[in-house]
Design a binder for these strands. Structure first.
Length: 554
RNA sequence: GCGCCCUUAGCUCAACGGAUAGAGCUCCUGACUUCGGAUCAGGAGGCUGGGGGUUCGAAUCCCUCAGGGCGCGCCA
């Protein structure tokens, strides 16, 4: 039950009737909003402002007529007050009964309040992290991981069928280079002089890995020819690093349903097939021995190589086969979450889907901007190649899972993030994550105290006693939750939820300070405990959508 | 050079084309004998980077300039 939806439909009904009367087709977009200012009511519509221009009438006059029609449409007394304000807005105040009805619904639904149960929701494949298995996850990957995971939770909660997937780039030059780097490290440990490849991976983790491997196999690969030894090292490096990544994500409570290996596309012949298909569709041509895809004609800035002069396919070819495979599995929406450094790649992929005759609107690419770490007010420098980077594991250890996830999600992923390690690791009032968790702990504490006093919340608490402005305001905040979650999912903006929760927490803490939950009249105590229950449920559900725990004690 | 993203309070950031641009942190001043002070109340802090345009209405859309980030491989 979404207050906004109910309100919106009543307003729309009223407007529609009036439009029919006036003989105006409903092509004008009319919005129902939650005003920023409380004095402007619970909801507000700009309908009259939008219509007045077309009708060549004064907005306020149009508003007056619409208002009458909306009032008529509201047969059940959902609205308490309708007024025309400012340049011609129609402001709406809901009746107390309406809010109480929502609260009752929130109590019935419990932790499913705000959830959408849809049998045939959109089938979404959400692909994220997909970091090359050439090193441990760092703080940048962490952001993509949490954003993707939270989005998956939000979409699932709002009625989508979501599958999460990690695309493993386990073939190609970079993996070859990784294998060579590990091989060099191994030889070095065996006391042999060996140089890392020019663009090799210099991180300390490969030395550790080489040591671990040598402890298992000893010097067995010392006399083996490089060509023979190399594939072994490549596989060992790739597998073990990927294993580390799996563990990191697990620790971080990031859930991946499927791990999709690039190599499987080669094994199954999908890559070759996609090249053939594009050739049949007349999308390819040869130049200087290489095969190009005509991506420029589909909106990319230039044509791209699919097959190199030496006959090997490019990463782009694999990626095409990969996305085609995803679409063939019946997903109606593919969401890819990429690091912002890959943004130039997006037009190429959409171009390719068009070239394959697919609707490119089924592909949505979200670009997550970079993360800088800040400690004690100073930026921590990072560089993957030199191996000087802060790993996700280190951040989790330093600030904790809850705080790390929360800090990642508190900002729009479309903007750069300064991750303040000093602040995030503080277990004090400066740290906003505890402000929210404290609401939950506090309410649990109230119920512990209630139990001690022998007070039990009844199944049908008298909600009509909740008539104080502070009580109504808290109810209103609770009632917004379904709308916030729904919008957060539609806009692909998880950060709206932490902001909402901070807002709710503020409202609750203020209420707590000014009123008592226990010790009033029995009816009032029942009503307030009901309200507290609803707040606790919303906080708990909201935090779970972020993958953050809701502790009973802190 | 070309392309994409960003620029909002001292700092970090919000704001579905709407009305007087909001939070947190920092700084200052206050509050509880009660259910948890990881709390609450108040104050200070802004020409939304500059300039044009569209609109009844612009932080938001368009153009332009300036500053910052990131791309522009037969790497992935």
């Amino acid at each position: 039950m979404d207050v906004r939806r109910i309100t919106e439909s009543l307003i729309q009904t009223g407007i529609k009737r009036k439009l029919e009367e006036w003989g105006i087709p409903e092509e004008i977009s009319v919005s129902v909003e939650v005003p920023r200012q409380e004095e402007h009511g619970d909801f507000s519509t700009n309908a009259a402002l939008q219509l007045a221009g077309h009708m060549k009438r004064k907005p306020r006059d149009v508003a007056m007529e619409l208002l009458g029609s909306i009032r008529q449409a509201d047969e059940g007394g959902w609205f308490r007050d309708l007024t025309v304000a400012g340049p011609g807005f129609i402001n709406v105040v809901l009746s107390e009964g309406a809010w109480q009805e929502v609260l009752a619904n929130a109590l019935t639904k419990g932790e499913r309040f705000g959830a959408v149960d849809r049998k045939e929701g959109e089938r979404v494949l959400l692909e994220f992290v997909s970091a090359n298995p050439t090193g441990p996850l760092h703080v940048g990957h962490g952001r993509g991981a949490v954003v993707g995971d939270a989005l998956a939770r939000i979409l699932a909660f709002t009625g989508c069928q979501v599958t999460t997937e990690y695309y493993v780039n386990d073939v190609g030059n970079q993996i070859d280079c990784l294998g060579k780097s590990l091989y060099a490290r191994y030889l070095q440990l065996c006391g042999k002089k060996a140089e890392l490849p020019e663009d090799g991976y210099r991180g300390e983790y490969l030395v550790d890995l080489a040591r671990e491997f040598r402890e298992e196999v000893g010097d067995r690969y010392l006399p083996v020819e490089e060509e023979e030894a190399f594939p072994v090292f490549r596989k060992v490096a790739c597998d073990r690093i990927l294993n580390g990544i799996r563990k990191d994500l697990e620790t971080f409570h990031v859930h991946i349903d499927r791990w999709f290996r690039e190599e499987s596309l080669h094994e199954s012949g999908s890559v070759a097939a996609i090249v053939d298909e594009l050739r049949e569709r007349g999308q390819l041509y040869e130049s200087e021995g290489a095969v190009y895809f005509k991506s420029e004609s589909h909106g990319d800035e230039k044509d791209r190589v699919l097959v190199r002069a030496d006959g090997r396919t490019t990463y782009f070819a694999s990626d095409l086969a990969y996305h085609r495979a995803k679409l063939r599995q019946g997903f109606t929406k593919l969401i890819d979450i990429w690091g912002a450094d890959h943004h130039g790649y997006a037009p190429r992929l959409s171009a390719a889907l068009k070239g394959l005759g697919e609707k490119d609107s089924r592909l949505e690419i979200l670009l997550v901007q970079f993360v800088s770490l800040v400690r004690d007010g100073k930026t921590v420098q990072m560089s993957t190649r030199s191996g000087e980077f802060t790993t996700l594991r280190e951040v989790m250890d330093e600030v904790g899972i809850d705080a790390a996830r929360f800090f990642y999600l508190l900002r729009s992923f479309r903007s750069h993030l300064d991750f303040d390690l000093t602040l995030a690791s503080k277990k004090s009032n400066e740290n906003p994550v505890y402000y929210i968790q404290y609401v939950h702990a506090r309410i649990c504490s109230i119920f512990r105290e209630a139990a001690d006093r022998g007070i039990v919340l009844s199944d049908a608490p008298p909600l009509s006693v909740l008539s104080l402005p502070d009580e109504t305001n808290l109810m209103k905040k609770v009632a917004r939750f379904p709308d916030v979650v729904s919008e957060s999912g539609k806009a692909r903006e998880p950060h709206r939820i932490p902001f909402y929760l901070l807002d709710l927490a503020r409202e609750f803490h203020a209420f707590y300070h000014n009123h008592r939950f226990l010790g009033e009249t029995p009816e009032r105590t029942q009503g307030r405990l009901a309200l507290a229950t609803a707040v606790r449920n919303v906080v708990s559900t909201g935090l779970s959508l972020l993958g953050v725990s809701a502790p009973e004690r802190m």
